[in-house]
Amino acid sequence: MSDKENLFALWLEERLNPAQQQQFEQLLAQDDELAQRVATARQIKQSASEYRPQSVPPWQPGAVAHRQQRSQPWRGWLPLSFATSMLAIVMVLLQVEIQWHKQGVMISFAGQGTEQKIANEVAARLENFEQQQQQQLAQYVNELEKSQQQANMQLTNYLLSSSRTERREDFAELIKFVNEQRSDDQLYFARQLNQIQQQVYETTVPMSLEPKSVNN
């Protein structure tokens, strides 16, 4: 945009300062094209200022809104649909759960219903497991006691039987030893007696020889 056009724009909006006003007037005197443009603008300004607004013919302004509402009948459902959407979002965010039971309806939040259900099931299973374990433990203890008793009985019987045999064998061995000892003693005493007899005989023999000479 040239200075001339800028000055014209400022003049049109009545924003010329004194220096610009002076410059503009000088240009007007020199430039016929600008002068004609200004004259036309003044004429239009004058005519526009004399224009008297025509009054609006009778009409129904409210029909605009009704026409809009008729053309968009779903608009009436907007609040309801919005509320439903918000409810759905809130239910998802809060993890709302609705459970139907025989006793009635249970509404729970943040998965507490599921957690409660899981906790109940876990508790029931734990209790069942505990009972089974106790039964199995009692049965195991009984079996262990029985087997222990049987083992003890077997051990006792074994010990008793083995001790009898050993004692019998020991007595037999002792009797045998005693018998052998008696036999040895008899032999010893026999030999002693024999030796004594021999000694006795020897001591007594010289005297006997004399009877032999006597016979001579």
């Binding site: 224009y51 607004p53 025509q54 609006v56 302004p61 409210g62 605009v64 809104a65």
Partner: peptide, 18 residues
């Protein structure tokens, strides 16, 4: 508010019509 809407229209209807 329908009255406010009508008042807004009344305020500018002549300018827009002309």
């Amino acid at each position: 508010n329908n009255k406010a809407w009508l008042k807004l229209i009344k305020r500018y209807e002549q300018a827009i019509y002309n």
